[in-house]
Design a protein around this nucleic acid. Structure first.
Lengths: 329, 329
DNA sequence: GTGAAAGCGCTAACAG
DNA sequence: CTGTTAGCGCTTTCAC
């Protein structure tokens, strides 16, 4: 038998007689032969591997995203390499260089660093990349994001219904599109509703949520309700409120609706951006546009959904929440 | 210039004259030339990629492990492919087949499924694999685990000091070595201390923690303190206790000390198994034994550390905890 | 020091 | 339907 016949069998092509095919299969089995994906990648140019760039896999949002990306990729026979960029342009540059050398077929870029230009320079073929959780400036690259402005507005309205007249927003870095959009939504909604708004800086970390609370407490301008740019920051804020044994009836809401915050232990009100849908849609998009036909870039916006929980719920008639509850000796 | 000269420059070999070297470098720069890792892998047999097998990346223990694995691997210029096995033998089999075909250099196996024999059959070269978070039966494969028996014993002693006379243990699947060891440690310690012990089944999930509480509540045999096989299960147990508005002064402790449980929001007492050390040590081990010299398998056991928090702390003189606190209206 | 040639294990094009 | 041939882009002898 010739190598090409074996190759044909391996690729399930139909121009092989049934008896040859089964013969080849038997011999493959007997010899325990394993084809080399590396050699195949060298000649075809495809490694059936995609890269997922995240800010920090230890941030609970990303594992959920990674899981749905991985599940969807696997269905199509693709492996996923996960890379932590720490939102550093240098690190994402270094990673993309390496991944390109290693021959990954495509990228799902879900980290939020200020690296868009650099990334698109490194990956000139727009069909090889999809942005997730960040809306790129460039018009000709595909992305899937949540409607961040609407999500923030939904939270503001929810809190206003809860009789909060002064709402604080803990934001993210200005270079992060999702953080900017959430802040914009917050501003527009508070302005429209003529609600006092106060903003603190943050960086998506628990520590930054805690710092914001410190700043507000120190300034004596503590809002009665807090919206955080994401759930992690909200958890940081709550932690600090607990540390300070704050007796104020402060409502706290987050963004992303990561699995954990739905548990009664945390009970954090949050806006879901449907992480699993985002991941699977991103992979499908990428694989489709990596295919033969040329398809125009797809821009997809997911609808956010409000999940009200204890952290912003009315309690015994007065605005209160987990914070109050825990701090009461 | 010949290809071999370029190759020599790329590999930083010293048998190239300085002027040739700089000339080559310049041309590479001008042309924006990128070497092909795929072609290199084909000829050298090494792809500089390792695989990390986890049970479920959405389980908070694993992202922390993945992060430390990734950081350590990157230092050595290796990429990491993360794979969710769901603890299914079939899935890990399928993954290992694929990864081997794709040419990964080594495996870090941190998922706990009953797949040891199959895995070692698929990866006959013991130098290509390290087990993490699970102690293999096989004597000739390297691993890094925590001292699970000791960790469980530490928790028992801590709870006994807190005056608990009846302690429950929510376990894991019997095929998981780490779950078995923790259960053994629990049994030995309760026996030695002549403490009532009661055990419930679990599977490392929050849901299983909740189920255990249900079972105990239904049976009327609710222990006064609960030790869970890991933090996730402990969180599930606490959640259900909160749902049931349990007024019992029930202490809950977990295992792993994942980042989250240290926050005052959760305040769960836990035994740390030093996840970051485990990840980096595992990678270093793997890379060393994949090297030239033949090294014997390394068996490493990390010392567990107790972190006492609100969930098992004495409160106003009586045994109480978060559960009690939250459930009191 | 440098270049030429062989070949890693596949797929693709072409012949038969 | 099956076999032959020519690479894919590197590294590795072996000459020079």
């Amino acid at each position: 038998m010739s190598v090409s016949t074996v190759s044909r069998v391996l690729r399930n092509r139909d121009d092989v007689s049934d008896e040859t095919r089964s013969g080849v299969r038997r011999v493959i089995e007997e010899l325990g032969y394993r084809p080399s994906g590396v050699a195949r990648a060298l000649v075809t140019g495809y490694s059936r591997t995609i890269a997922l760039l995240v800010s920090d896999i230890a941030n609970p949002f990303y594992p959920q995203l990674a899981k749905s990306v991985e599940q969807e990729a696997r269905k199509a026979g693709y492996a996923v390499a996960i890379c932590n960029t720490s939102d550093s342009v240098d690190e994402s540059t270094a990673y993309i260089h390496r991944l390109l050398e290693q021959g990954v077929d495509g990228f799902i870029h879900a980290s939020v660093g200020p690296d868009e230009e650099r990334v698109l320079e490194l990956i000139p073929d727009r069909r090889r990349i999809v942005f997730l959780n960040r809306r790129p400036r460039s018009r000709d690259v595909s992305y899937v994001v949540a409607d961040n402005r609407k999500g923030a507005a939904i939270l503001v309205r929810h809190l206003v219904d809860g009789r909060h007249g002064r709402i604080g927003f803990i934001g993210g870095p200005s270079w992060a599109a999702n953080a900017r959009e959430r802040l914009e939504g917050f501003f527009r909604a508070t302005t429209d509703l003529r609600i006092d708004a106060v903003v603190a800086d943050g960086d998506f970390s628990m520590a930054s949520g805690a710092r914001a609370v410190d700043v507000w407490l120190a300034s004596g301008h503590m809002p009665t309700a807090i919206i955080a740019v994401n759930d992690t920051v909200a958890l940081g804020a709550i932690s600090r409120l607990l540390d300070r044994a704050a007796l104020l009836p402060i409502a706290v809401a987050g963004f992303d609706d990561i699995d954990l915050v739905g548990s009664p232990i945390v009970g954090l009100t949050s806006v879901a951006q449907h992480i699993d849908k985002m991941g699977s849609a991103g992979v499908r998009l990428l694989l489709r546009q990596m295919g033969d036909q040329i398809v125009p870039p797809v821009r997809k916006t997911l609808e956010p959904t409000l999940h009200v929980r204890r952290s912003t719920a009315e309690y015994e008639g007065s605005a209160t929440n987990l914070t109050l509850l825990l701090a009461t000796p």
